Amino acid sequence: MGDVWGVGRRLVERLALMGIKSAWDLAQANPKEIRRRFSVTLERTALELRGVPCIEMNDFDEARKRIMTSRSFGKLTDDINEIREAIRQHGQRGAEKLRRQNGLAKAVMVFLKTNPFRQDLHQYSPSLVLELPRPTADSREILHTAGQALERIYRKGYLYQKGGVMLLDLIDADRQQLSLLDTPQSDAERQRSAKLMSAMDALNQRMGRDTVKLGMPSPGAAWHLRCAHRTPRYTTRWEEIFTLHS
């Protein structure tokens, strides 16, 4: 009985008191009684065991409604330049995911967070949503708007622990509603943007992530993730290939 998804040890004991000791017993039980004594979730499980579909599974091919990329910094920092690099990195990652699902974003949200568990530090966790000039998946436009948002929410005197970028109001690129004010020139710019981003994504897929990127991150910046206990990556990094010495 404990092998049934969602049925834990305590629930097994309560079901046993009703004479339900196997998945077969649960499938044959009265669903309404199961719901009354336990929950609607267990009722659905009982119905599923009978072959009645009632638990919706996530559609992994469904396009996301929003895309967020964020990560805690390797160490606390108040350096605006380092934070700007982190936001730029997250913005590019989000734009890549957006293009993979053939989407466009209408707005960008940037957020920062201090460490809420450090009572000895001043706390400040701002966020700001800015509308993009037009629906886009162009990394350049997304990073420009994200940079503007960062400049407006950043405050000196705080040690930041985390930052991130969220792409909002996503739409399907094939269903984009063009403005009546669009001109042939703006349409040509849109096509050039799509070709440039496609070329970048193709190179990064073929040659490895970050082969082509916007802006060079500073080595050893505070926002880089700490990997002190990471095992050597023999199969993916030339510089970490195992060597033998006689």
Score class of each variant (00 low, 15 high):
K162G: 01
R134A: 12
I55L: 13
A107K: 09
G164T: 13
P31K: 09
D78I: 05
Q123W: 06
L214D: 07
W24N: 12
L159W: 12
L180I: 10
D174K: 01
D172F: 01
P184L: 12
S186P: 03
I153Y: 04
R100V: 03
A86T: 10
R71A: 00
I142C: 03
R9Q: 12
A95H: 07
P219D: 09
I55F: 04
A137Y: 07
G8M: 13
R66P: 01
M1R: 10
P116M: 11
R10D: 04
I142H: 02
L196Y: 00
Q205Y: 14
R175H: 09
R99S: 00
N81M: 09
R36K: 15
E48V: 04
S198Y: 08
P126N: 11
S186I: 11
T211G: 06
V7E: 01
E13D: 12
K65H: 15
I241R: 13
I83H: 09
G19K: 14
L170V: 00
A105T: 08
L42D: 05
L178W: 08
L159S: 06
M1Y: 09
D3Y: 14
V4L: 14
L203H: 05
A27Q: 07
L181N: 05
Y158R: 04
L15T: 04
T145Q: 08
A146F: 05
W238T: 09
I20Q: 00
D174I: 01
K21R: 15
A222E: 10
H224M: 14
P116D: 13
P232S: 11
E13V: 10
V110T: 05
H224F: 11
R175G: 02
A202F: 07
W223Q: 05
P184T: 06
G157D: 10
A86R: 11
R84F: 04
G208E: 06
D3I: 10
G208T: 07
L26S: 07
D174H: 01
L225E: 11
G208V: 05
I67P: 02
R100M: 02
T69Y: 13
R35M: 06
G6L: 10
D210R: 09
G2E: 14
A105H: 03
R84E: 14
Q28N: 09
F73W: 13
E48R: 02
L47G: 00
T114R: 08
D174V: 00
D187G: 07
